[in-house]
């Protein structure tokens, strides 16, 4: 094979294996960065890196997981470096709030309905975007993209048990934010707080 033929084959393999995952990667990048321009740059950088190292990629293995890992690492190395460290969470505060809601809401169906019916799509998106990065990541990958714990563990390189516990906390955190927001807006009556 000539060099040109090798390049052509590499390009065709990449187009077939990697390009179809671009929508999922973009959505993830957008949720990570919260900005469409940064998401554009992040996805572009990810694909250019992936293409550069595509000859090292083992055909037949999980290309999507490989791309997600590149994207996450690119994000950590480049986009997060100059801005901030991963957000610190006062989880105790979240827990206290959560435990305060709990006793009066053993049957939470009406509470969920109040929140669900009243909150707009954008308000829910905003609540998700406001979660600390690690928690936001698992929520997006699990609840929005529908990946299994094993896939998520593979994508972001953490143990399956960590995915589970992070998800548990992430949802509690999301719920307290939605609850607070709905209370402030008056969607939930005071006695339920």
């Amino acid at each position: 094979m000539t060099e040109a033929e090798i390049q052509k084959k590499l390009y065709e393999d990449f187009e077939r294996e990697a390009i179809p995952h671009m929508d999922a990667l973009y959505n993830f990048a957008f949720r990570l960065t919260g900005d469409s321009d940064e998401a554009d740059d992040l996805v572009q950088e990810t694909y250019l890196r992936a293409f550069r190292f595509f000859d090292k990629f083992e055909q037949g293995t999980n290309c999507k997981a490989w791309l997600f890992r590149i994207l996450k690492n690119t994000f950590i190395n480049k986009y997060r470096k100059d801005t901030k460290e991963p957000d610190k969470v006062d989880y105790e505060e979240v827990d206290n709030y959560y435990e305060n809601i709990k006793p009066s809401n053993a049957d939470s169906a009406h509470l969920e309905k109040d929140i669900y019916d009243n909150l707009l799509d954008d308000e829910v998106s905003e609540a998700v975007n406001s979660l600390p990065e690690d928690f936001r990541t698992v929520i997006i990958l699990c609840d929005l993209e529908g990946y299994t714990y094993e896939e998520i563990a593979d994508f972001i390189d953490i143990p399956v048990g960590t995915v589970r516990s992070r998800l548990h906390r992430a949802r509690k955190m999301l719920f307290t934010r939605l609850h607070k927001y709905a209370s402030d807006k008056g969607y939930i009556v005071k006695e339920q707080k």
């Binding site: 939470s108 929140i115 669900y116 799509d121 829910v124 609840d143 929005l144 719920f175 939605l178």
Partner: peptide
């Protein structure tokens, strides 16, 4: 609930 609301509203 959180799983449902994220998949439906985000």
């Amino acid at each position: 609930f959180c799983k449902r609301i994220v998949s439906k509203k985000v």
